[in-house]
């Protein structure tokens, strides 16, 4: 026995694992295993345990995909998450590109974009109901300028959720991309200019490709966050109809019908869709240029 233990100890040492490493790293790993990995596996188990009235291990999944209203929640969510991600990127890429060099006041400007992060979903929702509502300042201004005859409906529908998610996600995407864009060596662009490349060509052929890894990460994070939209879909959306998103479907299964098997099945489905999307993006990213963006000397 002791011989086996000693052999195991030697193998661990060869792997660079010793008592001190375990003391430092062990507690953190235990927490993640207990509070993330185990619940996840537990959820998979619950989702495969049929609840009353259903039979077969996949019955909760079958019930979710078999019900047109439940199934529609996937499409409802994609219809929100994909455009929001695209809009955030389309706005943030050019802006990060313009702000890639330190300009006077860059820090206050980027701090300004952090402020929406502090607002919180409920404040944004409440504010949108007042500001963008039929009697709000926005509609008043539009009507005052004669742009519209009647108040535009911007809340309690699909558009409301899209707007509130852009407010929440755009700053994250922008700050992430700014980090990547400002890390690109300016000499690369100078070299491009010296070789006769115009502004558009320099952006298209030098900066954009070097920003691509950042864009991929931003797209993945933004999609994952928006695909899980929950509070704003309820508060400024139309939770009984077009914005009945998948997170809401999962929540209703768990806390309104107390069908935890179904709720777990929906949560696992949600995670699977997200991981598929992230994997697809990382796959595309792995085929792009992955070299340094700092430029060599000499």
């Amino acid at each position: 026995m002791t011989g086996a233990a000693a052999r195991r100890g030697k193998a661990m040492a060869r792997w660079g694992i010793d008592a001190r490493l375990l003391i430092f790293l062990g507690p953190a790993l235990l927490v993640v295993l207990a509070l993330f990995v185990y619940p996840f596996l537990y959820g998979v188990g619950v989702s495969l345990t049929p609840s009353e009235g259903r039979q077969g291990i996949f019955s909760s999944y079958a019930a979710f995909f078999g019900d047109a209203r439940e199934r529609a929640s996937i499409w409802n969510t994609l219809r929100i998450a994909l455009p929001v991600t695209a809009i955030c990127l389309l706005l943030a890429v050019p802006l990060a590109y313009r702000m890639r060099r330190p300009i006077p006041g860059q820090r206050p400007i980027s701090a300004l974009f952090v402020v929406p992060m502090t607002l919180g979903v409920v404040l944004v929702a409440q504010g949108m109901l007042t500001f963008l509502g039929p009697a709000g300042w926005f509609n008043k201004a539009l009507m005052g300028m004669g742009l519209v005859e009647e108040p535009v409906r911007l809340v309690h529908n699909y558009i409301g959720v899209v707007i509130s998610l852009i407010i929440a996600e755009f700053p994250v995407v922008f700050l992430l991309l700014l980090g990547y864009a400002s890390g690109i060596d300016p000499n690369l662009e100078r070299a491009g200019r010296m070789l006769g490349a115009g502004a558009w060509q320099r952006f298209r052929r030098i900066t954009l490709p070097l920003m691509m890894p950042g864009i991929a990460i931003a797209a993945a994070l933004s999609f994952v966050a928006t695909f899980a939209v929950f509070p704003s879909a309820v508060l400024v959306g139309e939770p009984a109809g077009s914005t009945r998103v998948i997170a809401l479907a999962a929540w209703q299964a768990a806390y309104e019908r107390f069908d935890f098997s179904m709720a777990s099945a929906i949560a696992i489905t949600m995670a699977a869709i997200e991981l598929l999307f992230v994997a697809a993006i990382l796959f595309v990213r792995s085929r792009l240029y992955r070299g340094p963006s700092t430029g060599g000397k000499g």
Binding site: F36, F230, A250, S264, A267, M270
Partner: peptide
């Protein structure tokens, strides 16, 4: 293992965790 809980949105593992 450490990146995953930050990448997966809370509501996805929150429901099994709450259960």
């Amino acid at each position: 293992l450490l990146v995953l809980p930050l990448l997966v949105p809370p509501i996805t593992y929150g429901i099994p965790l709450a259960t």
